[in-house]
């Protein structure tokens, strides 16, 4: 089971680098969606026997992270009719290098931390930390509101990966609450993105500079 899981995590970590290196908004959205779907099927790989509930959660996650949220972002992108190029505040090559360095750092850090025996072989902690770093890099290093939302999604994916370590000990109610909160958060963000577009006629957050010291 660990081999399959590690393969998926490796895939998600590779997608982090793709996200950092891509120069087009539609492909960034696609990468974030793909990563969400990869994450969504992980609980099925972890569980020893397939329970109905686990399948339902997996389907919900894949649908929300892989279809609903990307569709929302694409719609915002189309209605805003914005230029599809990402104007990076941190260049693509530097962000790739930083992302790769972060990944190595995450693997090293994860091997230093005390883990339970059943997690020794798994890449969960390393993948989680690497995705959190990649998400933060995108948040800071890209100027379009939608690309920042993608960064936030990748950050969230990293946290989700960490959450898988606790999958057997967190009560379902709490898990459901967390998932609900995150979904609402993205919806609210989507609404605000839409309003910003109408108010500023742009989704470039570099134009949000009225408020400063």
């Amino acid at each position: 089971m660990n081999d399959w899981l590690n393969l998926l995590i490796g895939l998600a970590m590779g997608l982090n680098l793709v996200a950092l290196g891509t120069s087009r908004l539609p492909s960034l959205i696609r990468v974030a969606a793909l990563q969400g779907m990869v994450l969504g099927i992980m609980p099925l790989v972890i569980e020893h026997e397939l329970r109905l509930l686990a399948v339902a959660v997996a389907i919900a996650t894949v649908a929300i992270k892989g279809l609903v949220i990307p569709a929302l972002l694409r719609r915002a992108m189309r209605t805003a009719n914005i230029d599809r190029d990402l104007h990076p505040l941190i260049g693509f090559l530097p962000s790739l290098l930083l992302g790769a360095a972060g990944m190595i750092g995450a693997v090293v850090l994860a091997s230093r931390l005390p883990l339970l025996p059943e997690h020794h072989e798994s890449l969960l902690v390393a993948g989680s930390l690497a995705s959190v770093l990649a998400g933060l890099l995108l948040l800071i290093g890209r100027s379009k509101a939608i690309s920042q939302v993608c960064g936030y999604l990748i950050l969230e994916n990293g946290i989700y990966l960490f959450g898988l370590l606790l999958i057997h000990s967190v009560p379902l109610l709490v898990e459901g609450g967390i998932l609900l909160d995150l979904t609402v958060a993205v919806f609210v963000t989507g609404i605000i993105v839409d309003r910003i577009q109408r108010a500023f006629d742009s989704l470039d957050t570099r134009k949000l500079t009225v408020l400063r010291e």
């Binding site: 933060l136 948040l139 920042q148 958060a185 609210v188 963000t189 910003i196 108010a199 408020l211």
Partner: peptide
């Protein structure tokens, strides 16, 4: 201006 403030609130607060 209010939307700008809300965006920053969401982004920083959300992170």
């Amino acid at each position: 201006r209010a939307f700008e403030a809300t965006w920053k609130y969401l982004l920083v607060g959300g992170t």
